[in-house]
Design a protein around this nucleic acid. Sequence first.
DNA 1: CAGTGGACTTAGTAGTCTCCAG
DNA 2: CTGGAGACTACTAAGTCCACTG
Length: 753
Amino acid sequence: MGGEKNVGQARGGKAKAKTPRQRLSDKEGGSGGDAPRKSTKPNKERTKATAKSQRVEKVKVQKKVKAFKMESVESFDDDVRFNLAVKEEPEDGDFVPEKRGKKRKRPEDEPMEGPSCSSATPTLNRKLKEKDEADPRTENNTKEGIKKEKKPKKEEAEHPVTTKKKSKEEIEAAKALKIKKREEEEQQRWRWWEEDKYEDGVKWKFLEHRGPFFPPEYQHLPDNVNFYYNGKVVKLGLAAEEVALFFAQMLDHEYTTKDVFRNNFFKDWRKEMTLEERVLISDLNKCDFRELHTMHKEKVEARKAMSKEEKLVMKEANQKIVEEYGFCILDHHRERIGNFKIEPPGLFRGRGEHPKQGMLKKRIQPEDVIINCEKKSCIPEPPAGHHWKEVRHDNTVTWLASWTENVQGSCKYVMLNPSSKLKGEKDWEKYEVARRLKSCVNGIRQQYQQDIKSKQMEIRQRAVALYFIDKLALRAGNEKEEGETADTVGCCSLRVEHITLHDLLEDKECVVEFDFLGKDCIRYYNKVPVTKRVFKNLKLFMKNKEPGDDLFDRLNTCLLNKHLSSLLPGLTAKVFRTFNASITLQEQLQQLSNMTDKPAEKLLSYNRANRAVAVLCNHQRVPPKTFDQSMANLQSKIDGRREQLALAKSELKLAKKEVKAHSSDSKLQAVVERKKKAVQRCEEQLMKMEVQATNREENKQIALGTSKLNYLDPRISVAWCKNMEVPLDKIYNKSQRDKFAWAVDMTGADFLF
DNA sequence: CAGTGGACTTAGTAGTCTCCAG
DNA sequence: CTGGAGACTACTAAGTCCACTG
């Protein structure tokens, strides 16, 4: 069923159906992305066929290139005197400034506790217990912020007699408690950044955990809920029924109308059926899931309508699971696990035109799961009647459990929370590499400018690609297996059809128009003026190629990264994104913010700087469903204020007239003052709302979170907060502060990226 | 030495929670 | 007190990069 179709869908399909997201970005751009891909070859064979033919063609091209070079190399010569001694530049030395200061002795050097499973409680539980006793607020270790703040309110509710004054006191007390808690938490925090690093490759010396948490087993539908085939009730077996419910739950979603999705689903669903079911059910269009769908909707409604008490019970039950499964012991410290729950079964929802959308994501059994932990730790127990696929003791990796997912055949891992040492250390390292790049980026830039003139095609292509990666913060662009994923590209995998060259566009010379789908099928659309040399080279790279051919046919990420790491150890394509993002933030903050600004203005500047980075990195989002509505609401509010303002103004005028008439009346004078103030207030409020409106409009399609979390060196933000006397929690919420604890702790006002 | 897959980072969405204006 | 809007979290897909393999 339809399998063949899907293959075609992979690339060709892109032009047809558009995701809401694509549609969203269409309006800003030209029509370039919509042009159907005119590949001359059937898609499936394309990669390999073209790869080969390209190689043959390369020889041809090379010859042409040579000819081209002969005539054009001179015209490329440039003013810049290139400094080729990039590699020798020794500045990396300065860039390990905050070397771990005091070098505490790490507790791991002490003898490790032996296995204790057999005796009484497992070590993990015991340790957690100890912690609990020592720490009166553990109960909210996970939902800290929320619970903490909620608590005082709850208490308030319990004593409704309290007067206004008393509640004020209580609020004060709650505040004090909060501060105390925060301090305590701070004290308890593992300051791993003050410790020595382990030898190469070793990630931990002790690791103990409870294993992953499995979702509940499927329960049969109630008798009164029926599935119909061809108008007749059909009682499905457990397996087929479960999968049917997955589909029924999604009936409201656009997904279920797409052919690819439906075909994939139906094919996989039939595999779950018994023989009779399979014989009977041969056409998805004859299936009626409406009763299942209704039941599901009712369940969702019921959950929403639950009383406060019921919700609390649910919450506590969840909390218990988190307490039990959500933490591990890593080198004597209790660390939070990021994703301790096994992904429940369901229908695969890829992004964009994914050829595998709708396929069944199977239920993971303990028999599929590999456990990783310390040999001497208490090995997690598999659920009753089950066993693990394997128990491993590999301390060169950071995962606690892993399994292979059936749709794409890739590995899934249980790993630690971003606030953990393992993640934090890696993050810190990432920014240090980016800072090292800062110190030699000029040399590298000069070199690739030089390389653009190289006689070797691969070097030229590499140079132009690097130019894009550096200037536009494009992703590296690994090759992908065709038909396995949606058709998206990055820098190295750009195809001829993704760029359009304009000798002159909107008064600018040498403009390259990019239009392609990047990671997550987010459209990248940009018109960029480039140097003459880059422009000429692009023309050359595109010569004699089909729209579907690779732009950089001699280049891949592997080659590029090999070259980069020869310039600076640890340098890869993605470092440029990190570096450019962070340096942009720092520069923007410097430009936009002033010490004399009001707090709100400072925050606005920060958000603007953040936004500049998000735009650079092309971090988009779908505007909230309610966006237009809420915008309209705000607008009507603004209009209302305007009217109010006009009214206030005319009243002021009137009052002034009165004063003129009876000049000495002090009462009237006071009225004028009052009216004046009213006008002022009105004006201020109006302005505030207008700022809010522009701010919201500017943020409509831009997601700030991704860059904040992954690209901006937190030390820049911490230093800025210190300089500007802005409280850190205006910038970072609780989990962000936890993630960046290392930066918060080590950064002074004088930090420079 | 290309191809593959493992390990880890980066990504947007959906759902839930909180807060504040009316 | 309510509902709307925004903040925050959980989830999991989709990238990058590297080391291993045959």
